[in-house]
Nucleic acid binder design. Sequence first.
DNA 1: TTGAAAATATTGAATATTCAACAATTGAAG
DNA 2: CTTCAATTGTTGAATATTCAATATTTTCAA
Lengths: 147, 147
Amino acid sequence: MAKPSKENTPITEHLAYLLAQANREINRQLELRLSKEGVPVEQWRILKVLSDGNGHSMGELADAVLLNHPTLTKMIDRMVSDTLVYRVQDPNDRRKVLMFISDRGKVLSRKLNSLAVDQEEHILESYGDKSTSELKRLLESLIDSSN
Amino acid sequence: MAKPSKENTPITEHLAYLLAQANREINRQLELRLSKEGVPVEQWRILKVLSDGNGHSMGELADAVLLNHPTLTKMIDRMVSDTLVYRVQDPNDRRKVLMFISDRGKVLSRKLNSLAVDQEEHILESYGDKSTSELKRLLESLIDSSN
DNA sequence: TTGAAAATATTGAATATTCAACAATTGAAG
DNA sequence: CTTCAATTGTTGAATATTCAATATTTTCAA
């Protein structure tokens, strides 16, 4: 019996493709909601991370919000112009810049969170509680196993 | 007892974020392998879809490979220059353009598939057979429920 | 049959992202 | 101490993506 070859697997069966497709779709939906406040998904992430009130360096932020450094720098430039966040030089390591959320940023962050929560709840409804938490668990473990 | 508020959920617990993170990581790994042939992930997808030998319209292709139309048009322009694919006007509907894979494209496609299969096997090893198929199942069903 | 609306693909301008080079600071070896 | 390598963040040029406008063809209603 011939050993089953994976060479002709349709693209829709590749994990990489399924992840890209699911991510694209969920992201599109989230984008749609956040557009009510005229804010891209990445800015929601940035505000969410910073809303712990602590200072976060650019490198740390870039990791957390899944952007590479130059892209983050330029996005932060815009957010500083919009007075949503501000930069402070790290006194302990003057190479670093610490980012903080402003009061205006906090107000916006609350609105965005509520839009994001809306979406999560919408997913829970149409996709189910069980599937959602199981999917989250598997994704976390995939991410873990990739490091 | 206070009703649990989701407003302060850390970003790492949002499905949208987990999907983005997992997708980024898996995509990065795939990119790394395909870079051996100097080809971006999207071109692998295009070649894979076209390797059924049939003609596919630009719209159909754009859906299948998760690119929007103008981006696809420009990527196809490059691939035509590299003689990996070619355009034919659809005789039944002259608004449409049918894309076909060339012989050179087929040769490249085989190499790319083997690199992609390598990755899937690597994932199976580190992440496990069971988890992988379960994750795929859940992703498919999430995508379904989003349409 | 005609004319307006829809579908399909491309183009060019505006934006955004990425890559490589740079500047500043820190760490660490000699 | 001094010097050289590593770390951190930004910049500018090169690329890539997106949005809006366009051209072409088809569909379909009047």
